[in-house]
Amino acid sequence: MQPLMDFVAGPLFRLTFAIMLLGLLRIVVLTVWGVIQARRQTDDKVMPWKLITENTLGWLVPVLRLWKTRPIYSVVSFVFHIGLILVPIFLIGHIQLIRESIGIGWPVLSDNLADILTIVTMVTAVALFLGRLFSKEARFISRPQDYVWPVLLAIPFATGYVCNNMAIGAGVYQWTMLFHMLSAELIFVFIPFTKIAHCVLVPFSQMVSTLGWKFPPRSGEGVAETLGKKEMPV
């Protein structure tokens, strides 16, 4: 058990975390490269930076944009992201591990707040899953991975909550902890290759879609081709 835990917490963690970081870096470079190449083929080379910034910042808080059309969904998804981002980065247990291994740390969330955020994240994840399942329109445009993601993201939160708060036996604790780490590592591996890459691609996706408007009517194929998205639904 202990050797397995050590492997999952050591080498496997380094592998998956490196894949995530470098993979995200790679996807940013590839996207920017593609945008630059596409821009060369446009007639109008002016990039509306102000509009791009406005859109990027605006979509960071989707409540503002979707309040009128889909109020519940916008609130739920926004709340879901708060815990999703804050808890892993500012949990005291995680910070302690980082401090022990590389000697640096940063301020932490209070334990109670972290617990509340964890529960909120889990509940909203389930809500998002159910919403997708029971909404006809959402089902129509969903791929299998869209159903899997909320569930997969909730697993490390659930297992982490169990480990942190419940009086369980040592054996159960270790298995739960193993499950916690493995599920998180699975997420790390998938982040740069799936839609979760939007965590770094947000500004660039605005650039891509803004650039699309710059092309003369008949050059659409060229863009799709240059971006490598030909024959794909936009």
């Binding site: 894949i19 470098l22 993979g23 870096l25 790679r26 470079v29 590839l30 490269w33 593609g34 081709e225 240059t226 971006l227 490598g228 998205k229 030909k230 024959e231 794909m232």
Partner: peptide, 19 residues
């Protein structure tokens, strides 16, 4: 998925191998 033009596809593959 479509990887794009051969040039773009090569870029995608090599960078993936590197990472």
């Amino acid at each position: 998925t479509w990887l794009g033009r051969p040039e773009v596809a090569a870029r995608i593959k090599y960078s993936l191998a590197f990472v």
